[in-house]
Design a protein around this nucleic acid. Structure first.
Length: 280
DNA sequence: TGATATGTTATCTT
DNA sequence: CAAGATAACATATC
């Protein structure tokens, strides 16, 4: 799913290709996905791109911003004459551009285009004043970035609730950026059971988990994100973390540490993978 | 054909 | 009242 490593990868790509460009037009196929009016972005230059948790913000020169959340299946794909010929756009997840899921299309200067594709239409794009982005419910409720946390702050957050540790990690209001894949993998890596009460972790476990999240985030970035569903980067390329998950999606296979069969259950309505013997 | 996937938000329950 | 639990959202895919 699009979590920190995926959205950060998109942000880097968009920054490289969009900054300094001018939006010349917007074509809206599904109005629900675009809150705002085209004239508030047309003619504006793109200043920079920010990421907060799993959300993206494209700041414009006219005082407005495009606040974007791609949720499960959104894609932001740039196409233009400056895209290197060596780029292999995903055949499986995109095919041609535009395609039948290209619900919002931004026409940019120099013959380039930014496509917002979203088969499940869960995502959103909102035009708001740059100064008001922080008032949108999603950004307003967002907890601190995992990468900004020290072990001390992290430990304090964990000890604040007896909710299952996996659910706490995925609660964007407490810590932002962690979703189902990296929550499962980091808990496996640190040998902690997903349903263990967050406030019952020892300080050794807290540190192990902190380091494991850093590690799996690093791996996610290294492999360009996880494309097991619909994620692609800003140029439409697949990531490959889905081929390197530690435990996500591996139910029925053997644990690499002790050979036990990996189980799948549901915790908070979300798929949860764990080794029943080495995660305690 | 119907069960399945999930990030966020809304609503219900304790 | 707040924290936690559960349902809803949307729809392509297997």
């Amino acid at each position: 799913m699009p979590e920190f490593p995926e959205v950060e990868t998109i942000k880097k790509g968009l920054t490289k290709y969009l900054v300094g460009r001018t939006i010349e037009g917007v074509k809206i196929g599904i109005p629900k996905l675009f809150a705002g009016v085209p004239k508030d972005v047309i003619g504006a230059k793109i200043k920079d791109v920010e990421r907060h948790g799993k959300g993206l913000i494209i700041n414009l020169s006219n005082g407005n911003s495009l606040a974007i959340h791609i949720k499960l299946t959104g894609q932001l794909v740039y196409d233009g004459p400056d895209v290197p010929k060596t780029v292999q756009r995903s055949k499986v997840r995109i095919g041609t551009l535009p395609n039948k899921f290209s619900h919002v299309i931004f026409t940019l200067d120099k013959g380039s285009t930014l496509y917002y594709n979203d088969p499940r239409r869960f995502g959103w794009i909102k035009v708001v004043k740059t100064t008001e982005v922080g008032n949108l419910p999603f950004f307003k409720g967002l907890g601190p970035e995992f990468n900004d946390l020290t072990i001390e702050k992290f430990a304090k957050i964990l000890s604040s609730s007896k909710i299952a540790i996996k659910q706490l990690l995925m609660d964007q209001k407490r810590i932002s950026g962690i979703g189902n894949i990296y929550a499962n993998d980091s808990l496996y890596d640190s040998k902690i059971a997903p349903d263990k009460a967050a406030n019952s972790l020892s300080s050794t476990e807290q540190k192990a988990l902190f380091n494991s999240i850093k590690k799996v985030f690093g791996e996610g970035l290294k492999y360009g994100g996880s494309s097991e569903l619909n994620y692609v980067n800003a140029l439409g390329e697949d990531g490959s973390y889905q081929d390197h998950t530690l435990i996500y999606g591996k139910q029925g296979t053997k644990c690499k540490r002790d050979g036990s069969t990996i189980k799948k259950t549901y915790l908070g309505g979300r798929g949860t993978y764990f080794c029943p013997t080495c995660q305690k």
